[in-house]
């Protein structure tokens, strides 16, 4: 709209589905003729709630029916709460897409190791979708998902289908469980023992809390995956998403335009420095 990267394009909430107590998945369709460019796995949009504000949210699924957008939003603050309370038919402002993609389309015949923590599964879901659509391009495919509690599990229908799909190895663990839980308990990095991959031919994507990603990366490296085959998705405060507001800096990088998806080799000098 009017050529300024500050101006959102208006989208209508066309459907909402509840993932768990505080997570919803939205489908959005443009109100008018104007739509943002097609979005790719790993990219994010700025979503605006009328009169409240704007937050960065990763794309959580890529439908063949462009320009429909899919975003999963967790109720963690003022804007996200306003967004998830919007009824179907209401309007959300959208700016984007921003940031580089997970390099999944560039990968040929590699084994894949995805490690997700909590809502970190959302930005990785389009990667899983892409892999399943192009399964012949990949070797072994592993998805390791850790979440706090069985109640926090999201994308139930997808997970059931991934778990029953022999072409991917989907593993799930929780930090704490109720007595009837029959699955894994413990941190997500422990699941790496259940993954099948040839380290020297493996690419790994991680998304989750920073501490989880840090230990996830160590686990990948300990398993023999090479540093330059590890990617992670960072989270920082973002106001503009276009590299002009300064909020999202990590060392020399702007998380909004240099990331949010970073090769580990870029983040390596900064991940262990506290409060950077």
């Amino acid at each position: 709209m009017n050529g300024s990267p500050w101006n959102p394009v208006l989208y209508k909430v066309s459907s909402k589905s509840i993932e768990n107590a505080d997570l919803l998945t939205f489908e959005l369709d443009p109100v008018g003729d104007e739509a943002i460019d097609p979005i790719a796995p790993g990219q994010f949009n700025m979503l605006y709630a009328f009169g409240i504000g704007e937050i960065p949210i990763s794309v959580s699924s890529i439908l063949p029916s462009y320009p429909t957008l899919v975003h999963t939003i967790q109720d963690v603050g003022r804007v996200s709460k306003s967004l998830i309370q919007l009824p179907v038919g209401d309007i959300i402002g959208v700016r984007g897409p921003f940031g580089p993609e997970w390099p999944v389309a560039q990968v040929k015949s590699k084994d894949v190791l995805l490690i997700a923590g909590g809502v970190g599964l959302c930005p990785l879901r389009p990667v899983i979708e892409y892999i399943l659509d192009h399964r012949e391009q990949f070797g072994e495919v592993n998805v390791l998902f850790g979440t706090r509690h069985p109640d926090n599990i999201i994308y139930h229908r997808d997970i059931i289908s991934w778990q029953s799909d022999p072409s991917i190895n989907f593993q799930i663990t929780v930090d704490h469980a109720f007595p009837s839980w029959r699955g894994n308990v413990g941190v997500v990095t422990h699941l790496i023992d259940k993954a099948k991959f040839y380290p020297e031919n493996t690419i790994s994507f991680l998304c989750g809390p920073e501490v989880m990603m840090r230990f996830g990366i160590y686990a990948c490296l300990d398993a023999g995956i090479s540093e330059d085959m590890v990617y992670l998705s960072m989270e920082r405060n973002m106001k503009c998403a276009i590299g002009l507001c300064g909020h999202c800096q990590v060392g020399p990088y702007f998380t909004c335009k240099d990331g949010a998806v970073f090769p580990y080799t870029m983040m390596k000098p900064y991940l262990n420095i506290s409060e950077l």
Binding site: G146, D175, V187, V188, G208, V211, M212
Partner: peptide
Amino acid sequence: RGNEKHKGST
């Protein structure tokens, strides 16, 4: 990474 404890995955 001796000083750091991995407390949870989420």
